[in-house]
Amino acid sequence: MSNPPLLRGVHHCHIQVHDIEVALAFYRQVMGFDIVPELAFWFEQQHDGPLMLQDQAKSICLALFVGDKKSNGIAFRCDALAFVHWQQHLHDCDIKVTRADHQVSWSLYFRDPSGNIHEITCYEYEAVAELL
């Protein structure tokens, strides 16, 4: 089995919420988060999420999803080349992966042994498209 490709940090955490308005008010007022304007279209298209929030320093992101799915997860970020290598690495580890084109980013979704859904994400959209 090959070594895992390089990650560049955590991009965002997935959080399941019962009421998007209550959650948004909490994360705004208590934590100082606000909606990421350039990603607001995701929530506008699919009203169950993700609603992407970021802190004032723009260093922490949260993806809010409406529902009571019992899984949460972490989205790890990487560059374009590592994204392609992650896809192969997860396949080599015999882990089922779903690849998604989000129009501004690419993601690989997979589950850990406890059923949590994690993500490898890359915002180098054009570079990934050329490599795939």
Rank of each mutant, 00 (worst) to 15 (best):
97 V>W: 06
32 G>Q: 14
112 D>S: 03
85 H>P: 01
43 F>C: 06
5 P>K: 08
50 P>E: 12
85 H>Q: 15
10 V>L: 08
83 F>Q: 09
28 R>P: 15
114 S>H: 04
121 T>P: 02
81 L>K: 13
104 V>N: 06
97 V>K: 09
103 Q>E: 13
93 C>L: 14
12 H>A: 04
30 V>Y: 11
130 E>W: 02
13 C>Q: 15
18 H>C: 05
108 L>K: 07
73 G>H: 09
54 Q>V: 04
33 F>I: 09
113 P>K: 02
89 H>S: 10
24 L>S: 12
83 F>H: 08
125 Y>T: 00
122 C>V: 07
108 L>F: 03
95 I>F: 05
19 D>A: 06
83 F>I: 07
121 T>K: 04
107 S>M: 06
111 R>G: 04
57 A>I: 00
78 C>M: 06
125 Y>H: 09
23 A>G: 12
78 C>N: 09
39 L>Y: 09
38 E>V: 08
76 F>S: 12
16 Q>N: 14
40 A>Y: 12
85 H>C: 03
85 H>F: 07
31 M>F: 15
108 L>C: 07
82 A>Q: 09
72 N>W: 02
16 Q>G: 07
66 V>Q: 15
77 R>E: 11
48 D>N: 12
42 W>A: 07
17 V>F: 04
39 L>F: 10
29 Q>L: 15
73 G>P: 10
16 Q>D: 03
62 L>M: 05
71 S>R: 02
62 L>N: 02
119 E>C: 05
82 A>G: 01
99 R>F: 00
63 A>F: 13
62 L>R: 04
78 C>Q: 02
15 I>T: 00
74 I>W: 03
47 H>Y: 10
36 V>N: 03
77 R>L: 04
75 A>P: 05
52 M>T: 08
21 E>L: 09
24 L>Q: 11
103 Q>Y: 00
127 A>G: 00
84 V>H: 08
45 Q>N: 11
67 G>I: 05
73 G>E: 08
36 V>R: 13
88 Q>Y: 06
68 D>W: 00
59 S>V: 03
48 D>C: 04
92 D>E: 11
10 V>M: 07
69 K>F: 03
119 E>P: 04
104 V>G: 00
41 F>K: 09
127 A>L: 14
67 G>L: 09
49 G>F: 10
123 Y>P: 00
121 T>H: 01
101 D>G: 00
42 W>Y: 15
2 S>A: 11
57 A>T: 10
66 V>C: 05
63 A>L: 04
24 L>P: 12
128 V>N: 08
39 L>T: 05
104 V>A: 01
124 E>I: 02
58 K>W: 04
15 I>R: 06
116 N>F: 05
27 Y>G: 06
